[in-house]
Simulated assay, not measured.
Amino acid sequence: MTTIAPGGRIGILGDGQLGRMMAMAAAEMGYFVHVFGPGKDSPAAQVSHRSTVADYTDKAALDAFARSVDVITLEFENIPTETLTYLSERVPVRPNARVLEITQDRYFEKIFISNLGIGTANFANVENIDELVQAISHIGTPSILKTRRLGYDGKGQARIDQASAIDPIWEEMQGAPSILEEFVKFRMEISVIVARGVDGETACYCPVENRHKNHILATTLAPADISKRLSSRAEEIAVEIATKIDLIGLLAVEMFVTEDDTILVNELAPRPHNSGHWTIEACAANQFRQIIRAVCGLPLASPVRHANAVMTNLLGNDIADWPKILQDPDNSLHLYGKGEPRDGRKMGHVTKLLPLNKKP
């Protein structure tokens, strides 16, 4: 079945805040959502029609899940590719397992992007300390050592400033397959979120600037303060990657803008993205409605914004500021239904809209 009409059943792998906002968007469009994940009383399950609490490798649970839905998508990429392959034999899965095979592994991801002729930081695969020494001799310092898999929000990575100080850094990686990347002196980090439908139609949200605190996204400014030429190039890159990877769904492409206005792709995320939360208030069709349209085979909506915006993450105890946030009538507050606040934990976000003629 190519098109899933309203009234259909959407399965979401993953049960966090992205799944929560996807489920809410789907419900507004007349769909029923069944969320699958390991967490009890998860943010997504709180607002979904059905939920299954199980491991992603539980085949009995996966069988029942597949029977209950018309299409399956995901809210984060660290799901076993074997799970997607298994489910795809029973029901359409969008995006497919190959997309995850590439985006789960930083080395495969960089190779894929480089083979398209799109710029990235210089990089090298590292399987042991001897390869790390060789990679540093080629790439130089400072450089960034990252685990190939599972790292996010600054986890699983370390900066190398001196080639003589690598022993404790490699021990910290615990021998995990890694990638060494050149340290990029960038003036701005941006991201573009692109949707691609079953028929190959694409739609891009404008490039936005992302500012981090302790390696975690703190603020997104929409749009990014870059030239029209750079903005167009960033969107072209996102569309080319989404097309060549055969995406159905949503892809966030994180990029660096260097001091000489070169664009280098940093990472890919085949799902809704934290840097797209501003679209809920600032666009006629936000990123969560857009992914539902894409995976259900519907025509994509216009991504054009009707306002500029500033989105700020509420991390850890920032959530305690909700009374102050609501004192400003122009703030839109989103809380994720999570339990205990922890340092760096994304508890919610707040978006403020600005006129189109005012820079964020």
Rank of each mutant, 00 (worst) to 15 (best):
F288V: 15
I263E: 06
P323A: 07
L250V: 10
E259D: 13
W278E: 12
Q290A: 10
E240V: 01
T220G: 15
G339F: 00
D318A: 15
L315V: 01
A222E: 14
F288D: 15
A307T: 06
N317K: 07
P329T: 11
P323G: 08
F256N: 06
G337P: 07
E340M: 03
A269R: 04
L247Y: 10
L230E: 10
I291F: 03
Y336Q: 10
L251I: 11
H306K: 09
D343L: 06
T243F: 07
G297N: 04
L251D: 11
V257S: 10
V295Y: 02
S275M: 00
A307Q: 12
H273E: 13
A301T: 07
D260Q: 05
G339K: 05
F288M: 14
L221D: 14
I245K: 02
K346P: 05
E281A: 15
P270K: 07
F256T: 06
A285T: 15
D328L: 12
T219F: 04
V253M: 00
S232I: 08
E340N: 04
D321C: 13
T258G: 08
P329D: 14
H273P: 14
I237D: 03
H273V: 13
V265E: 02
D321T: 13
E259K: 08
E240N: 08
E259Y: 11
S231M: 04
L300A: 11
T258S: 08
L268D: 06
N317G: 06
S227D: 00
H277R: 04
V295A: 07
M311D: 03
R289T: 14
I245T: 05
E267M: 09
C283I: 04
D343W: 03
F288P: 15
F256I: 01
A309T: 12
E340S: 02
A282K: 11
D261C: 14
L298A: 14
N274K: 02
A238F: 06
T243V: 10
V265D: 00
P270M: 09
S332R: 09
A284G: 13
E340W: 01
G344F: 12
R233K: 14
C296V: 05
H277Y: 04
L314W: 08
A320E: 13
K244A: 13
A301K: 13
L300Y: 12
N274L: 04
D225T: 02
N286S: 13
N308H: 14
A234L: 01
R233T: 12
Q327P: 03
P223D: 04
M255Q: 02
S332W: 08
K228A: 14
L268M: 08
V239C: 08
T220V: 15
T312P: 00
A320Q: 10
F256Q: 07
S231F: 03
I291W: 02
Y336P: 11
H306S: 13
K228H: 15
I241G: 10
D343Y: 08
W278D: 11
E259A: 08
L300D: 12
I226T: 09
V304D: 12
D225Y: 01
Q287K: 11
